[in-house]
Design a binder for these strands. Sequence first.
DNA 1: CATGACTAATTAACCAGTTAGTTAGATTAT
DNA 2: ATAATCTAACTAACTGGTTAATTAGTCATG
Lengths: 223, 223
Amino acid sequence: MGSRGQPEESRAAILQAAAKEFAELGIAGARTDAIAREARVNKALLYYYFKDKETLYGAVLDHAFSGMKAKVFRVLDSDLPPREKIMAYAGEYFDFIASNQIYPKLMQREMMRAREGNSVHIDRLIKTYFQPIYRRVGALLREGIAEGEFRKVDPAHFVPSMISMIVFYFSSAPVMQRIVRFNPLSPRRIAQRRAAVLDFISAALFQPRAGTAMAVRKSGVRT
Amino acid sequence: MGSRGQPEESRAAILQAAAKEFAELGIAGARTDAIAREARVNKALLYYYFKDKETLYGAVLDHAFSGMKAKVFRVLDSDLPPREKIMAYAGEYFDFIASNQIYPKLMQREMMRAREGNSVHIDRLIKTYFQPIYRRVGALLREGIAEGEFRKVDPAHFVPSMISMIVFYFSSAPVMQRIVRFNPLSPRRIAQRRAAVLDFISAALFQPRAGTAMAVRKSGVRT
DNA sequence: CATGACTAATTAACCAGTTAGTTAGATTAT
DNA sequence: ATAATCTAACTAACTGGTTAATTAGTCATG
């Protein structure tokens, strides 16, 4: 009680509980009472740290996307050649999502909300995260094409294709689990998925050449 | 007013308005008043035809998915050889979604809701629609592999990969539009996407053989 | 004149956001 | 040193606007 409990801890607990609730139920379905209960704080504390529900939701989005951007840009800023870099990018993105499985849900929710006026956050998110990443990956693809390494794909289609294969798998896992008999989120299956995605991408992107040794980086992922 | 207006029309108007509202805002965000207004009927009429909001939502889902299943099964039941059939399947699925763009939103919403207990509908949807389609496409893939036409892909990964590329494009279009300068939903771009998806799939699935003439059914578009 | 189609008005529950505080510890005054 | 004062962190209880759902009926037609 009282003024203890390290404010940072409380704030972080709220943010984490909110991320879970928003990812699962969306902003309309999320209940501030549930977030407070999950974070083990009084509901009024949410409003002490964040202006309102919408602002809290925005903070959750920024937290998730900034983490992703940081990870992914470390790869995109490296000086790998195009083939290795695009594989490393996809792998890094995959690993981020595999260990932050609320991210794909938040992302898809926000994508669907992005009709004019529906989301106060989407413009900021696009400008801060999506646009820079898209530009960078697009440039990488054009570079690979120019060097004759990649097939002449259209980045505006290829980028969303890559993202979709990674993001969709995780957000559809609960349904998948009921269709097939195994658990799509077991470490074994996640590793398989990683390999499948990278295989799919290289098959669709790389210009076939002699002795194509497909480079599928091993995955250090936990569930 | 009174007992006129053909009940079928009213029911259909409600269903259509509800589909739009649910797709855009999810079940929690949807407002029954908005649905009634959009359908130009009194709100109580929703409850005359459907037990409650949740039941109406279920009816919307069944309507959307049964339409899709019918379309897709006409292809899957045909006697095309594996290569042509899988392309025809993907093409048909793509065309269905392209002309029913609320479908991908409803689908993704329901996928994210599918945590134990969260959705009353998911078990029925899986049993009635997803499971049968998945089994049929899985069998088709295994057939193609057995005949040496397809690479040895894992259906449990390949099927969601195909679906994701098709579904994700449409639900992410509003965001994409703000990242790139063109409209991803223009007929021209949709045709391009169709070609890109089919190209992507054939590149990743077909066993390379001499004289590979890529078969891109109708809407003959180049990337 | 019964029945299916439909509605205006109302109700009950829910839930985001507020209020009016309390508590614990840091800071200053004595 | 210690009492007085301040402030950030936190909470129990409440409020009012919103919204799903119901009620009690009207209207048209076979």
